[in-house]
């Protein structure tokens, strides 16, 4: 699998590695997918990178590759920001080859990472017709998670026709941030758009939302999909290629 802009792949790994330290990559002719839960089984990430999004892609037989994302992140940090990236696994090999090439083809770096035997648990994610779908700048969402974490461990997300409100309370007191729907959309990237069938009010652990925000550099906008008594879906699109979707189980009243 070859990417002209290897930085896209580095951003994907950076977006996942805090939530899941290691994961099984499923490779087929259609592309690369991954599904993994965090160690406490509260959150899940689902990644799709379609074959047509790569400069070139070939997969002769389906493969499951157990990879340490922490190690892969370290290797990818050595990459120049404009480098292209090729990922290769040879038949019967127990390692993955990560090759980087500088833009003017005067530097070539190759790394081999040993593959791991991982027990993976796969969950069926039902198609959900969410009550509420919010789109907002991903930088804004990152900032809200950071700001709410000052006040408490949990954030309550409430939606109305007018907007969406994030609030948190704790020993210090409480705080809230309300975003109003953008009425005059000039730049789509900066817009806050709320599609609502029913109002929702759900509580989530802000620690996980903050981990999801590590994927924010992938996309200028984030999608949040919510329904009562259903895990939140937080989506970052990977330009033309696929997406990273995070799911988070809500907190419920004791």
């Amino acid at each position: 699998a070859r990417l002209l802009h290897g930085s896209i792949f580095a951003k994907v790994i950076e977006g996942l590695r805090e939530l899941v330290n290691e994961a099984t990559w499923e490779c087929s002719g259609n592309g690369i997918t991954l599904q993994a839960m965090d160690s406490s089984h509260v959150a899940l990430v689902s990644l799709v990178m379609r074959s047509e999004g790569f400069e070139s892609y070939r997969c002769d037989r389906n493969m499951s590759l157990g990879i340490s994302l922490v190690s892969m992140s370290k290797v990818l940090k050595t990459m120049g920001k404009d480098d292209s990236l090729t990922i290769r696994v040879n038949d019967d090999s127990d390692s993955i080859i990560i090759a980087m090439e500088s833009q003017n083809q005067d530097k070539f770096a190759d790394y081999e990472l040993r593959l791991m035997d991982l027990d993976s648990e796969h969950l069926g994610i039902p198609d959900t017709d969410y009550s509420c779908a919010i789109k907002m700048p991903s930088s804004e969402f990152s900032r809200i998670c950071r700001d709410m974490s000052i006040m408490g461990d949990s954030v309550l997300i409430c939606t109305t026709k007018e907007g969406v409100k994030f609030s948190a309370k704790g020993d210090l007191g409480q705080g809230s941030i309300r975003l109003v729907q953008t009425t005059n959309i000039e730049k789509e990237e900066e817009a806050v758009i709320i599609e609502m069938k029913e109002a929702v009010a759900l509580t989530f652990a802000v620690r996980y939302l903050s981990m999801f925000c590590k994927a924010a550099p992938l996309s200028p906008q984030v999608g949040l999909s919510l329904s009562e008594d259903t895990p939140l879906m937080c989506e970052f699109k990977i330009a033309e290629m696929g997406h990273v979707r995070f799911y988070l189980a809500p907190k419920i009243e004791d």
Binding site: S40, H41, V42, L44, G124, T230, P231, L248
Partner: peptide, 14 residues
């Protein structure tokens, strides 16, 4: 006080 639910409570094992 609220408690954290787990994800397999909502999604089934494949």
């Amino acid at each position: 006080p609220s408690i954290q639910n787990s994800l397999p409570f909502y999604f089934e094992n494949d």
